[in-house]
Structure formats: C-alpha cells, structure tokens
Write a protein that binds this DNA or RNA. Structure first.
Lengths: 191, 191
DNA sequence: TTCACATAGAACCGATCGGTTCGATGTGAC
DNA sequence: GTCACATCGAACCGATCGGTTCTATGTGAA
C-alpha cells in the first residue's frame, strides 16, 4: 500500500531540492558514480518526479552544472568586489577566496571541469568553456584596471594560475596552492 | 567453429599490445566510456586473454596510467635536457614541448588527471599525485639552478602554470596556452 | 465537496556492465 | 610427434544502468 507522505507539493521547491542535492552528489561521487535510482532514494524523491522535472539524467547534469557555474561566478565576483576598487587588492581577494574553497573538507576540484573531464562530448564541455570564459573576463578586467601593457595576455596568465592552483589543491592536497599562486599573480600584475 | 588466428602467441607482446591500445582508448573515451567487451573487440583480443594478463579492469587502468606517467615524465625531462644546461632555456623548452602536445589533434588534456577526476577514490588518485610530484621535482630543480631565492615556492608556481596551461588547452581549446604561460614562467624565474 | 495534480512506491523494460567459464584451435618447445 | 599453453569466440552470470508505466494517495484550489 503506497503512501504518499505529501511533503511540499510545490513543484518549484521540489525541483530546487533535486537540483541542490544532485549538485552535491554528482560533485562527491562523479557523474557516473551515482545512478538515478540511488540519487532518488537519497534525495527522497521518486524517479517519476525526477524525470518529470528534468526529462533525462543528462538534462539534470546540465542543469546542475549551469547553476553551479552561475553560483561560483557570482561568488568569485563578489569576493573581488568586496575587496574595494584596487585591482591588486581584488586579485589578492580572488586567490584568498580560492584558498578558502580549497581548504573545505568536501573540496574535490572544480565540479564543472571534473564533469567535462568525464564526458568528452556533450553539454558539460560547453558549460566548462563558458565557465572559464566568464572567469577570464573577470581576471582580464582586473589586469586592465591594473594598467598592464597587455591585459589580454595577463588575463590568460592569471586564469592559468587560478586553474592550476585548483588542480594542485585537488590532486596534490595543496590547500595553500592558491596562496602560492597569489604571489605569482601579483608579480605578473606588477608587469 | 572457433578459429584461433594464431597471431603472436608471445605473452609479453600480447600484454604490450593490450596496454598500448587501452592507453589510447581510455584517453579518447574515458575510463567509463568504454567497456571491457568493446575494448577487447577493438584491440582484437579475447576477454579471457585480457583478464589473464591484467586480472581486472581496475588493474588494467592502473597499469595504463603508470606506464603513461613514466612515458610522459621521461618525455618532458628529455625535452628539458635537450635544451642544454641553462635553466631558462630548459624551462622554455618544457613549455614549448607542452605547446606541441596541446596542438596534437588527439589532445584531450592530461590522461592521468582526467582519470583521477573520474575516479574520486582508488589507484588513479595515487598515480596522479606521484605524477605531479615527479613534475614538481623537475621544475623545482630548474628553479634552483636558476638561482631564485625560494626554489620550492617558485617550483610550485611553475607547476601551477604547467597544470593550468594544460587545463586551458583542453577546456578552452587554447592551443597556445603553454606559450602564454611560458612568458609568465620565465618572468617568475627572473625573480 | 470536488477535482486536477504532484508525488510515492514499486514493478518492469531492454541494454550494458565487469567478470567467468568452456570447448576448439593453433603454436612452439621438446 | 607430443604436449603444455596462449588464444579465440561465444555463451553465460548476476548486477546495475537509464528510463517508463502503473496504482494509490495526499494536497490545495475552486
């Protein structure tokens, strides 16, 4: 005798619950590391509900990654802005924010780049590209306002340091990778 | 009526064939992107043969990654050495070698780091860590011979640039990411 | 009160997974 | 010629996969 517990019955809320929980589970276990069935039982939702909201696992993955990219981009941008107007301070703040993220016990690298590394083709690749483009935009803007002669190149070098630091924090456990990278980044910004 | 074609019958050669082919296939499709059955038919080997040589898919993966790490490490080290004794020249050679790799049509990022990103636990993580450690050793040595005041820190910054450049070449299609990173690396080496 | 609807829970589907086993066949050393 | 052995090809295993469909049930608005 099936018993519907009647929790929320608010579709938007249900969708958000699935999205949030799936974000954490995919991040912790990998896209192929958790199946739809386990996903549903863990979240506390039926498969029919999940499929009515997202249609397919791939679509859920895409929704998860896009919302994650939005959130992370907003987070890093606000970290920069909260450091004031000075581009050097902003750049330092970006790397300090990264260091804080890397030190979190649940840190496992960039969820979006990890996903793109798992699925060589398909939506995650495109999301990853846009994600990096947005980050490059932020860093290039800082470089430009710092008055470097070639903001485009310096922006790319800063993005290289950001990406590399996250890689080392993940694969070598270097929780201070961003701090080390920050010194290099500031040196580059000073021409 | 099964017909054994009787190719090599040399176990060592068979093992090497499997290892080489699996290296390419796992790199191109991802660890979970190709199953043992398809792997075998593509290579032209029976499942029994593969399992007698490697025991399990995980073991094959580990053997693939370790041999790959050895090969790549040797390759980068020889690229540095063939540039002469000057550490600046050697560092430039390292990044030029990376740029050549990134430009290859089959380039899909670092096979070892991709694998580690797919399997959050297990052998690939350990292989990735050792892989980065070996690379750090090379870069730190270059920094030391260049006479920087803090070779350990500079070595880590150089590794950050190397890793970041490979990430950008993969996820943004920046085939010149290593060239851009090279300028930053040389600047760091000049203190 | 009525009714459209969001949901739970479970059964079910075909496909694929990693892995095992077996018989047939050819190889190469003795 | 004999024989241990490496190999193939295929059948087979239980488990899991993503996805569909069904019934039953509680919700909330009309």
């Amino acid at each position: 005798m099936p018993v519907a517990k009647g929790a929320s019955l608010d579709p938007a809320h249900t969708r958000a619950t699935i999205l949030d929980a799936a974000t954490d589970l995919f991040y912790a276990r990998g896209l192929d590391g958790i199946g739809v069935a386990e996903l549903c039982t863990t979240i506390g939702v039926s498969k029919e509900t999940l499929y009515r909201h997202f249609g397919a696992k791939d679509k859920l993955v895409q929704a998860v990654l896009e919302s994650r990219s939005d959130k992370v981009t907003r987070w890093l941008r606000s970290a920069a802005e909260s450091a004031g107007d000075d581009p050097f301070d902003q750049l330092a703040a970006v790397f300090d924010a990264l260091a804080g993220w890397h030190a979190e016990p649940t840190f496992r690298g960039c969820a979006i780049l990890n996903a793109a590394a798992q699925q060589h083709e398909g939506p995650p690749r495109a999301v990853a590209r846009r994600h990096l483009d947005r980050r490059l935009e932020l860093l290039t803007d800082i470089a430009r306002r710092a008055g470097v002669t070639d903001p485009t190149t310096v922006g790319r070098q800063l993005l290289t340091l950001v990406s590399g630091a996250t890689t080392l924090a993940d694969h070598r456990g270097d929780t201070d990778a961003a701090v080390v990278a920050k010194q290099a980044a500031l040196a580059l910004l000073r021409h």
